[in-house]
Design a protein around this nucleic acid. Structure first.
Lengths: 351, 351
DNA sequence: TTGTATGCGTTATCAG
DNA sequence: CTGATAACGCATACAA
């Protein structure tokens, strides 16, 4: 037995009314007599009638659902953001349809086509780290699809954006390391093309410069896949540790890069972080439980999701074209844990 | 400018054909001449035509989307499961619509009504810890909605279920503590009504019994909200520590209970886990990076999501009614980290 | 106050 | 080979 829903027609037939009368009664129209209304409402309740949202969507040319594209759902930052997205969507009567790019450009494009063509009213996106060509987003946006970008944004597209102050976060983190005596600070970053990467690296470099430390190209490593593959992180950490002099501290500019670095340093039996200063972006719910002094830059992911959704719904429901787009920038949270002063400046050989 | 999609009608008008011809050409029907086909296909490509999935849904009486209800998206276990769900759904051309109950029965019911009434083809559910009344699920299932339960299942409803061997997981964890010299092992569990809670507590009790340790009621604590509220965990940990004799080890039978316990023990400056043995369920990506000997019971959440979705799609697409439902039981992974033998059996006073 | 007819985008059925 | 028409479920302009 397949799931068979009751329709307005069933009610009309059972009550000897027309479908339009039933429809109006259900919508509590003023032009229906109280008796008829009561009759219809009670019967509808009795047989558990619910309007078919698909028929409504077809009629109203809107689906009351929003699409979300993120790199990976099982990433704390994104799952927290989706939490925020779902919360606001729920409050406003919207469904949330999620899909993941897994950092792949091709999958992102496929998901984009999959979600669009009118099955969604709007889109919330954090672009894949692989993506260099934004023409698909651009075209879609030009054709009138409301889009809000968060975290990994596309600067070229004029629409609302929600980000954290990546520059400041990286700057503060770097300064923290410097103030604790570290001087040879390496940075492990995400794909160079990403806006967040550029901002974070800029903050790192600025902090070094402001404290009279010369930046070294060999101390900056990029991971094309954002650390999605652990060997990628292992590779760059190994390269860093082989340098002479090697770094005495690492700044990990991404969630997966932070945990990846930590994992590899631990696996190689360093006394982490006694010997190596380590600070990194992380939104995992348990990084705070890791022994200090690993310090953390945490992003307000939930709030970002909430704000993005708020803005998107404004776009969707605005009667007039919006031309005044805003970029909301939130402050990241720096969680300083313990001191890292003990064995400063002593690089460790990497076997 | 609102998002205006291209329809079959547009193509028909532009090419001077009828909509049916266009439709058939697009679907590569045998009864259309090669020339017409080519013409239509090329024009469709050119103006970027995509069929409206909503119209298709209305016609085919299926939405090719599946609903998911979990307690909390921003919980590693669930986000990993959703990852698995999305993977399989994507491969099969299904959309995933997510919603969260936040462990509330009311919200669960609302989401249920929200998702159903034919806007979804099937449902994957892990029930809220608050839920005691399963009649809504039962009714929906009786009316023909394909449902697959995972993790927190409803035994009374005859359908596919995906779980881990919670009994064995708790049993092995308890035995591990016993083998490391702990004798006063307390258990902190989720809401008593949940199937997973009953199974886990049963495993814990069986392990005690098999090793000649008498269980004590005062050593078993239940958290109605599953540790979603930290004060709830604080409450029970405090109660446990006030006991004389207090426990020398804690078995946390839920993700939030594990991290909650750890957080509270640390906040109270115990030398955790030197003094208190601690082992608990956790699917967080970074619990492994926490200093041992906190040991972990990890659930194969991703696989559970995959399997649940596979089963659901089978249900949805099966031509004939399914009566032969299966319960897939997966093995949890016990991650033993370091030794906990140092200060065994010495309960710590709780201030 | 209620009923009839139309359209949302698509495909299936029937004519031609 | 192609076109006209009905239907999916609903809401609404227009009639009565």
């Amino acid at each position: 037995m397949k799931f068979e829903a009751v329709t307005i027609k069933d009610i009309a037939k059972a009550l000897g009314l027309s479908t339009s009368t039933v429809s109006r009664a259900l919508r509590d129209s003023y032009e229906i007599s109280p008796e008829t209304k009561k009759l219809v409402l009670e019967y509808a309740e009795k047989i558990n009638y619910h309007p078919n949202p698909i028929a409504l969507s077809l009629k109203e040319r809107r689906s009351r659902s929003i699409g979300v594209i993120v790199a990976e759902i099982a990433n704390s930052f994104f799952s927290q953001a989706i939490d925020g997205i779902e919360s606001i969507a729920y409050k406003n009567g919207y469904n949330v349809i999620i899909s993941q790019s897994r950092e792949s450009f091709d999958r992102e494009v496929i998901n984009l086509h999959y979600l669009t063509s009118r099955s969604i009213d709007g889109l919330i996106v954090s672009v894949a780290s692989e993506t260099k060509d934004f023409s698909n987003f651009k075209e879609l946006h030009d054709r009138g699809m409301p889009i809000v970008f968060f975290d990994r944004i596309v600067n070229e597209i004029p629409t609302h954006k929600v980000i954290v102050d990546n520059y400041q976060g990286a700057y503060d983190a770097t300064r923290h390391l410097i103030e604790n005596g570290y001087k040879l600070i390496a940075a492990i970053a995400n794909n160079e093309i990403l806006s967040i990467t550029r901002d974070r690296v800029a903050g790192y470099k600025a902090a070094l410069a402001d404290h009279g430390i010369k930046e070294k190209d060999s101390f900056i490593k990029y991971c094309a896949h954002g650390g999605l593959i652990l060997t990628e992180v292992e590779q760059v950490v190994t390269e860093l540790m082989k340098l002479k002099p090697g770094p005495d501290a690492i700044l990990a500019l991404g969630d997966k890069l932070t945990t990846g670095s930590l994992r590899i340093l631990k696996a190689n039996r360093f006394n982490v972080p006694d010997d190596i200063g380590l600070i990194g972006f992380s939104n995992s719910d348990t990084t705070e439980l890791i022994e200090p002094p690993l310090s953390i830059i945490k992003q307000p992911a939930f709030e970002m999701g909430e704000i993005a959704t708020d803005l998107l719904i404004q776009l969707i429901e605005s009667k007039h074209p919006v031309t005044d787009f805003e970029t909301r920038m939130l402050a990241p949270q720096l969680i300083i844990r313990g001191s890292a002063k003990n064995k400063k400046g002593k690089p460790i050989p990497f076997s």
